[in-house]
């Protein structure tokens, strides 16, 4: 196999990894924002935000990596997706602006404190929804005519994309709740425990609905998943997902603290894997494959060298910062 064939495959997985890291890491931070109205008072809200304050910025950077990685490795896909999904991307970016500055501004504000509490909640909610819509639109497929997207400014709108939008809100909320179980004690942890099981049930329902919708979509997804013998080869993914759901359920009923978060992460990872396997080998289903969208070999190569060196370093100091901020976050142990 030539570099021209191999490098796009490598990059597909690097970008997939970056997006997965984003979904998991910023997922739980967005989840905190989604759940923030469940706090009894402002102190509890402070506590919830303080569990993520030192690390949220690094988490969000994975989104930027996913974006520029796509730009570098699959410029055709980057330009096509972003211009076709103009409005959902706009919503996401603006939501992330409000969510992001809320971390700083809420602790600086006095009278306008509620504004940034609301910005944190609504920003997280809207960002999660927009990301779900983008994901749904991508999975559903973006038909091209002569290499151009012709569905117009609202081409992404569909019941399926709305479903994935709502599903991601609950998915992130689940990650946020189990993160709070891990990082807090007392009342906030109790709230998180109480939220986890209903959230799980909703997330499982959403996953089921998404799965049964797949055969009715235009993209290649259904063919891969629902034809024999593919279905047999791929069957470990749904089986593991089901086992994971059961394990998560029991971890929560037994009041475990670390296990629910880890199992939510793996639950998410499996769902993500299911979608990636379905999309493969397209980068924009159903027409644009990773080889058609790939940048020149010299670009892929050059960026791969940097990634191979820097990504382990990034992971190492990310792990370091999580270690610095390990343990329960107590009230008042807050801001600089």
């Amino acid at each position: 196999m030539s570099l021209q064939e191999v490098l796009p495959v490598v990059w597909f997985f690097i970008i997939g990894f970056g997006v997965l890291m984003y979904v998991l890491l910023d997922g739980f931070v967005l989840g905190l924002g989604i759940l923030s109205p469940f706090a009894d008072d402002e102190h509890q809200r402070d506590l919830m935000m303080n569990t993520a304050a030192p690390i949220w910025d690094g988490n969000e950077t994975w989104l930027v990596l996913g974006g520029v990685g796509l730009f570098a490795a699959f410029p055709k896909a980057y330009s096509l997706l972003l211009s076709a999904l103009y409005l959902p991307i706009l919503l996401m970016v603006i939501a992330l602006i409000f969510r992001g500055v809320a971390f700083e501004f809420r602790f600086k504000a006095e009278r306008s404190r509620w504004v940034w509490g609301a910005a944190f909640h609504l920003g997280s909610l809207a960002a999660a929804f927009a990301q779900g819509v983008i994901l749904g639109a991508l999975v559903e497929g973006m038909p091209l005519k002569e290499g151009k997207y012709v569905e117009g400014a609202l081409g992404w709108f569909s019941p399926f994309a709305m479903l994935t939008g709502v599903a991601l809100i609950f998915g992130y909320a689940l990650l946020g709740a189990t993160w709070l179980i891990l990082k807090t004690e007392g009342r906030v942890q109790r709230i998180a425990f109480d939220l986890t099981r209903p959230l799980m049930m909703i997330v499982i329902c959403c996953m089921f609905l998404v799965s049964v919708s797949l055969p009715f979509l235009d993209s290649q997804l259904m063919q891969r998943w629902f034809t024999l013998p593919n279905f047999l080869y791929l069957s470990p993914v749904p089986l593991l997902t089901a086992a994971n759901a059961v394990a998560l359920w029991f971890a929560v009923t037994r009041n475990r603290e670390l296990a629910p978060f880890v199992l939510s992460l793996s639950f998410f990872g499996l769902g993500f894997l299911g979608l990636v396997l379905g999309v493969w080998p397209n980068i924009v289903p159903p027409h644009l494959s990773i080889w058609q969208a790939a940048a020149p070999v010299s670009s892929l190569n050059f960026t791969l060298v940097g990634t191979a060196i820097m990504l382990p370093a990034v992971l190492a100091y990310t792990a370091y910062s999580y270690r610095v901020f390990r343990g329960k976050v107590s009230e008042g142990a807050g801001y600089h």
């Binding site: 930027v64 520029v68 699959f74 980057y78 940097g306």
Partner: peptide
């Protein structure tokens, strides 16, 4: 993209 993308990727990574 084959030129600007890699430069921006290096910016994010480094």
């Amino acid at each position: 993209g084959g030129i600007l993308g890699p430069l921006l990727s290096y910016e994010v990574l480094t």
